[in-house]
Design a binder for these strands. Structure first.
Lengths: 116, 116
DNA sequence: TTATAATATGAATACTTATTCATATATTAA
DNA sequence: TTAATATATGAATAAGTATTCATATTATAA
């Protein structure tokens, strides 16, 4: 592979390098997507679109094991996709912010247009 | 774990189940995010935000090996994140549609607000 | 029609991460 | 203060997948 000398490409390379995110920023952007890219977690996020829920009800909504759902909830929380508050014996989970709703909506839109 | 009888939760469970995506739909939504959740691929996508590029220039922009980038490009293409066209000896890659640009922009926005 | 350039691909390996199992913590009720 | 409920967590394993290496394919130029 020697050289492709298209001027537009070289400009694009230049701007790509200038505007490149730091490793840390890149990691943070990717984390949001990586976390949402797992069906078991996406199910939880979609369930929470309907509003705040305790773990017991999340479990009813998405299925699986208590331990599994709990682990996934922690990943979601660590990555600020969801937040939680305690109410008595229950911990109530909800989506962390509106970005999440929008991001998921975009994902669904892409899914629809990517349908074969 | 016996019973949490909050009426709102039960409604949320109900609507979550009614509106649940099929396994196949769920898989498609997740794929978009899973693919974007890998730094090596996100770098490529971000590079292509600046416009169409051949593999050689993508390689210059993101680093890594030729084989590695090529494999990642295939994953991106299979999931309709990018598309490609041949021009002589070169294959030119570009983002598949505007959804991608928007999804990535949202991811960045979430990253910013999730900053500690 | 051979050589070279540009890109793609199969197989193997190395990493990452989801899931499971057993157990721990925290809250309320008795 | 003991028992029960609700949720979380550590460690182990299993599953998935990124990366690498060697090689194949496709297009052009000599």
């Amino acid at each position: 592979m020697t050289i492709c000398e298209k001027k537009e490409h070289e400009q694009a390379v230049g701007s790509a390098k200038r505007e490149a995110l730091s490793e840390e920023q890149l990691g943070r952007v990717c984390n949001v997507f990586r976390v949402l890219g797992e069906p078991s977690r996406m199910k939880i996020v979609l369930a929470l679109t309907g509003g705040e829920m305790c773990v017991y009800h999340i479990l009813q909504a998405v299925g699986g094991t208590q331990s599994g759902v709990s682990h996934q909830l922690r990943v979601l929380k660590d990555n600020r996709i969801v937040r939680s508050r305690r109410e008595g014996q229950n911990i109530l989970y909800s989506l962390a912010d509106d970005h999440i709703v929008e991001i998921v909506a975009m994902g669904r839109a892409h899914m629809d247009c990517a349908e074969e």
